[in-house]
Design a protein around this nucleic acid. Structure first.
Lengths: 318, 318
DNA sequence: GGGCGATATGAGTAATTGCTCGTCAGGCGA
DNA sequence: TCGCCTGACGAGCAATTACTCATATCGCCC
């Protein structure tokens, strides 16, 4: 998207049409005449601009109900920061709702001129956040991954957000080139013995800011879907009270990490509860509510970006 | 717009409808059902959200042609910064085109964490810039006006941008409470003798960044329209080669300030050529092209935000 | 050079949106 | 209290936009 020379007029025209439509407020007929193309082509360009994510829309208005929820979350859990986006209604994708708000939160840190180490998890929510990110230069910061990027099948993780962010802000980035979960403890030790990997892990551990998604541990847990754990392992964890997971580290309804022998193979960096630095969760959706609540309660997260209905649900229970 | 408690659900609903429409991509019929109102009301809410400027749209794509023009401007005039927005086509208002880009430039400075003194002119272009500004907090900076805010008829200047920016970013601001042009030299001296006014002027003179509009000196010059000068004075200035004006200071086609006895009554702070700090002009439109070119040539401005057709025109002549 | 698949194009049509108008409720001064 | 004015509302309709489909074009492999 930010590549300098390619695509001389491919999505270039789309951007121009999108500009004329959304910013200039022209009708597609006028755009067609302006660009000297058919009306249908103008329509396709505009629609492409939208599909390619060239068009960023933001509502510049604090909706009262959301502000109240932010305040309530902050008070209840002693957060440093809470952002609640308006809900998208029943059937819609919660990620769509929170992505722009999450991007805005991340931009707050990116905009700072003193160099920060920004640690990032993975997942659909963070991926959405990146897509909504404005392309601003912030080469002073360093971006580091909280979690290994090698999937069980050896491929690079599908939702790798760190490359995409780094691409947009042109900052140095440090992915963690090791398995999310190593096959054996020995493999884990072998990886972490490597100098470069140890350095990345140290960087992540002392990050100034952390952005992570939150995984739920229901029968359709992402850990299972992505084949990081087996069905049997999931069931065993559920029996022990597992309710959620952050960077691969599983916790119960009180936000206590479940100790297990598998821990010694986990490639993700664990977030200690009540860090004195921002640890911000980006998550929404009914299924994730108990997990989010647990993480907030225990202080694994001290900041949250979520949507309206999730915020209400989180606050509904003590 | 950022007021905390008023309007419990007045434009609140509008914001929500706008969100559902532009961000969630729902149809107005769906929104109507979601909000439990009639389709017509949903339509009105969406349209209101747009009219009130709650909806901010940005195209996140560097259009090749504009990038080339930016490069050409930077090279030709040795600028620190050039931004060219896509043109809006023949009949459209140039301010609409450059406002978002100008806002983005201003935000670059507002986002810096070290405290800056930001000086601002007036005019329609800057006013548009403010309207496009994202509401971000930047209390570390100080905003100072380059130009007096008392119009000839005693009213506060219509396009007073500094209050509006300060309101949006919650930064301390220093308007210049004196006439744009004093009636006599004595009046000017009396004003500038006052301590607070002297302090504001000093602040403006040592500003870290300057954003100003550019006025043209044709027969419909803004200085005349706003009754700062008479028709006779305008004609006299034109005879002496006046081509443009920045903060009330008139210059010729080479960007040389016209010396005149009236200078001693001018309330605006004059920008010295080739300042070592950013002095950014925000201006577009065919009538302003010679003025912009002159200001760039002489180094009164070392940065520019303009639109595509203006950029081409500026570059067209040597 | 010919066939083939992928992709772009324009026409037509369905869906959605924006506008105008007649109506009505509430506020306000006579 | 009456009459007038302002602003909101819903209905209907015109304008605009999105989608579908048949056709044309291009690149590529044989």
């Amino acid at each position: 998207m930010l590549s300098p020379e390619i695509e001389p007029s491919q999505s270039d025209d789309a951007a121009r049409a999108g500009w004329l439509y959304y910013v200039a407020g022209m009708t597609q007929d006028q755009i067609a005449r302006e660009l000297g193309v058919s009306r249908q082509r103008a329509q396709r360009l505009v629609s492409r601009a939208m599909a390619e994510g060239l068009v960023h829309v933001r509502i510049e208005h604090p909706i009262a109900a959301c502000l109240e929820l932010e305040q309530a979350l902050t008070d209840r859990y002693g957060l440093t920061r809470a952002r609640v986006a308006p809900g998208l209604g029943a059937g819609a994708d919660a990620v769509r709702a929170i992505a722009p708000a999450a991007a805005q939160e991340l931009e707050r840190f990116l905009a700072m001129s003193e160099p920060l180490v920004i640690a990032l998890g993975t997942g659909r929510a963070l991926r959405g956040m990146v897509d909504s990110l404005t392309g601003l230069d912030a080469p002073q910061h360093r971006l580091v991954s909280m979690i290994g990027n090698i999937a069980p099948d050896g491929s690079a993780s599908f939702f790798d957000v760190i490359m995409r962010i780094a691409d947009k802000v042109r900052a140095p980035h440090y992915p963690m080139p090791m398995p999310v979960i190593s096959a054996t403890r020995e493999e884990f030790m072998a990886f972490t013995a490597l100098g470069p990997i140890r350095q990345v892990r140290q960087l992540a551990e002392r990050a100034d800011v952390i952005f992570v998604g939150v995984g739920q541990m229901g029968d359709d847990a992402p850990l299972l879907a992505d084949k990081f754990i087996t069905r049997a392992e999931l069931t065993a964890l559920q029996k022990r009270g597992a309710i959620g997971e952050i960077a691969g580290w599983v916790f119960d309804a009180e936000g206590r990490y479940l100790e297990s022998p598998d821990d010694t193979r986990l490639g993700g960096v664990r977030i200690d509860p009540r860090l004195p630095r921002p640890a911000i969760g980006v998550a929404a959706g009914a299924s994730k509510v108990p997990a989010i609540r647990a993480a907030l309660k225990a202080g694994i997260l001290n900041g949250i970006v979520t949507d309206e209905s999730s915020a209400r649900a989180i606050l509904a229970q003590g």
